[in-house]
Design a protein around this nucleic acid. Structure first.
Lengths: 213, 213
DNA sequence: ATAAAAATTTAAGTAGACTAAAAGTTTTTA
DNA sequence: TAAAAACTTTTAGTCTACTTAAATTTTTAT
């Protein structure tokens, strides 16, 4: 009598195929240019049939979605690791935030793919895309809000604004620059940060403590 | 001997076909749902062959681009008509701005199509898309900047920030809410405006004149 | 009026996403 | 170990964007 594993062979094989498919997709998405990627090619490298790719991920966007989802947890971690307790004001905070996001984005996928990701998140053919994106945003805003609370508690920022509300506003400001960064090959991280710094100055997100002093 | 018209018959016919094609596209985009629109169908209604549609507009996105470009001038006009001299502070200004944009957007195309437009503007398969979009943005920011200058001149806002810089920041904040509005069927204009109002409050874009008083 | 020029259309085809169903294989279960 | 269940693959096909080239029509110029 054989030992019955907690997860049957079947489950493990499926997990394996799933992993092989997204690994193959990542390989192609990184190597090959923009749209030379076919489901067929992914299937080949993964050692499965193209029908299987469709069965697993539904659409090409589905594969992309899986790719992005994979790196989400890591981003949250990095964010909490590198962002907490480092900033003197919301402007500062926001610049760090963008810098972390830009670095993280390029570490995993290249701009061409991120464009498709963002496009898909707006386009909403695959409803899961929108949801995934919104969930991630919410958690990121949560991190921002926490930091804002800390700034308020330390008297480094006035306590008038609701932290979550301000978190969303800040996130959106930053996200606009992130999308710019992704949308053009001419905008590197330094340029994106410079622009965000301009935003921060124009909105006076650095020197608001004056009013509280 | 016939009178030679300034624009030959040929030119006029081309203009005609162009117009018929985008009219057909608009009709389909408004009537039929999301992606039931084929180049073939557009061509049929326009009374040309599908190859001609491709020759004229290159891609399906190209047709979309033309559709959007058409309404750009009107938006600028409306903006200048309805925005100038109406606001008491940047927050106020921004809310009017978003309200005009939302109304204008739905007047011409429905959300499903705007999603594709925004997606295409990020995606950058058609480089003209990005350019058109950026140009429009710049002109819209110009309008905002003008108004900010006016507020500053009237002493309704502090003169510390560069108007153009602040214009971009404000535009981005507003645009984030516009994209939300477009991306979800559950978010109507009222909700979008409410969210923007929260942003405005969190960023204290309404009561800044205190510092100057 | 006729040749030349300029477009459009027709025809034929490629490519890739996505689907459906039959056939074949492997794991599971009893 | 044999039947059943669960998958994957093969096969065949649809749909639509997009391309290319030849055939055809229409405008223009002489």
């Amino acid at each position: 009598m054989s030992v019955k594993p907690r997860t049957g062979l079947r489950e493990r094989q499926k997990e394996d195929r799933r992993a092989r498919i997204i690994a193959a997709a990542r390989e192609l998405f990184l190597d090959v240019g923009p749209e030379n990627i076919t489901i067929e090619a992914i299937a080949d490298i993964a050692g499965v049939s193209s029908v299987t790719v469709h069965n697993y991920y539904g659409t090409k966007s589905g594969v992309l979605l899986a790719l992005v989802a994979e790196s989400d947890r890591e981003l949250l971690n990095t964010m909490q690791q590198e962002l907490i307790g480092q900033s003197k004001n919301p402007g500062d905070l926001l610049l760090r935030f963008l810098s972390i996001i830009c670095a993280h984005a390029l570490k995993h996928l290249d701009k061409v793919i991120w464009r498709q990701v963002i496009a898909a998140s707006v386009n909403g053919q695959d409803p899961r895309f929108g949801k995934l994106y919104h969930d991630l945003d919410r958690r990121l805003v949560g991190v921002l809000a926490e930091e804002i609370r800390r700034l308020q508690a330390s008297g480094l920022w006035d306590a008038d604004s609701d932290p979550t509300q301000l978190g969303w506003a800040l996130f959106n400001i930053q996200n606009a620059r992130f999308v710019e960064f992704i949308s053009s090959d001419d905008i590197d991280q330094a340029v994106a940060l410079l622009r965000l710094r301009n935003d921060v100055q124009a909105l006076m997100l650095e020197k608001r403590s004056l009013a509280t002093q």
